[in-house]
Design a binder for these strands. Sequence first.
DNA 1: ACATGCGTTCCACATTATGGAACTATATTT
DNA 2: AAATATAGTTCCATAATGTGGAACGCATGT
Lengths: 254, 254
Amino acid sequence: MAKPEITGTQAIDRASALLIHIIEASTPPLLSQLALAHELPKSTSSRLLGALEKQGLIQRDRDGAYLPGSVLTRFARQRNHELDLSLKMRPVLETLAEKSGETANLAIVGNGYVELIDQVDGRYLLGATNWIGTQVPYHCSALGKVLLAYGVVKIPNGRLEKRAPRSITTRPALLAELELVRRQGFATIKDELEEGLIAVAAPVRDFDGNVIAAISVSGPAARIADKQLTSLGEMIISEISKQQPHGSKKAGAA
Amino acid sequence: MAKPEITGTQAIDRASALLIHIIEASTPPLLSQLALAHELPKSTSSRLLGALEKQGLIQRDRDGAYLPGSVLTRFARQRNHELDLSLKMRPVLETLAEKSGETANLAIVGNGYVELIDQVDGRYLLGATNWIGTQVPYHCSALGKVLLAYGVVKIPNGRLEKRAPRSITTRPALLAELELVRRQGFATIKDELEEGLIAVAAPVRDFDGNVIAAISVSGPAARIADKQLTSLGEMIISEISKQQPHGSKKAGAA
DNA sequence: ACATGCGTTCCACATTATGGAACTATATTT
DNA sequence: AAATATAGTTCCATAATGTGGAACGCATGT
């Protein structure tokens, strides 16, 4: 007996399923579509959805299609998830910058570009420019490759810009590279974003294991040998997992 | 009372109330606290919360306290709210650029700076540089002033940088300026971000009336007379409200 | 006018949610 | 170590609650 199946929750199960459907739908579903998809009578759907709407968990557009409600959109926006994230990842960046001596960055998906949201500089002068706010394309940065590889963002349409001598510019090559990233667990670039720039990046995952961000270490090719890339990648992975123990054990927190 | 009270939804009403409580709580509540606050028996609370947890709408931390679940955190992050927004606001930027001839921008709060997420250039060459990705401080941009004035972001700590001859650099002056913005409904700058640059910005609101972004029109002082500022401000406000009819309930037929 | 598709309201019915009590698991106190 | 308190889960008899077919409303299209 491994199934402690909760019972007496039919209504909530159904309503939750509808709510989740609405939250995750790429295009706002109509009542009839929801009813069909969940095999519910229209009357039942109407009642369930009405209740959710009354609470502000969902709302309807002028066509009557269902959208996430104000409670949810407010939660999504007001709560600065990025800030939470940078706060939580700060120590990781610091440790990485300390151990490697190079610059460490934290990035999430941005509007067409990698969005760098935090940085800790290494101990060298060369390479410590502030990246925050710069426009880094996905396909030619280590951070971007990680975000692409794990499906956090789709490969952008249009041409792949040749930013530097060795930028990847064809889709097949990029796809192969992303496959490699997934196999290795980390991404690298060399002369792909800027001549002489090397970077290594690994994914940051949430509670559920979904990739939500990436952390990189980057510096000049003059200081980072090719054979260090793997150990750097593993260092990043290890530091990230130290920060976010993927289990659910005891840990004092405020 | 003309209240079309929906009935037959007790379980969902209760579960929704609990869910919302958890979403909006500043500190994760325990089952007993939820039960107390909502005047429910522990057994009922346990069952309701168990159902929500099973669906991934809520999750428990190691103390057993309830947090928003993976479905919601994923929605909050991955779902590119900015993209939705730029898509919806594109026509407004286009109309404004068309009507005024100047550059129109859409911005949201960013990491310490105004984040410009879309731009439509005007018909003049002068002034059409691409702002997307640049670091614009809140206190010396029209967009930033709007975001500050309506509390979308707090006034940053630390000194107020003097970016240009007439940048506001003291807190009292800034507070007074923000009060003016709220009274007018729009914000302006002149020689505050860059010498010779004039901009006007107005707030973009969501369904509920919360300010979530700002739209500006900007150009060289040489082309924009002081007395045009008000009409520009009103034009922006009017175009935004055309895009988002503030009807809360039924918006009639198309 | 008629047909179609979407959504809401109604209501008889029994399935489903309810909540008190018993129980388990951890802290806290004596 | 036992006693007490606090937080949470499971059980189950009971009836209140949610259910869904049918009828109705209300647009839009033919």
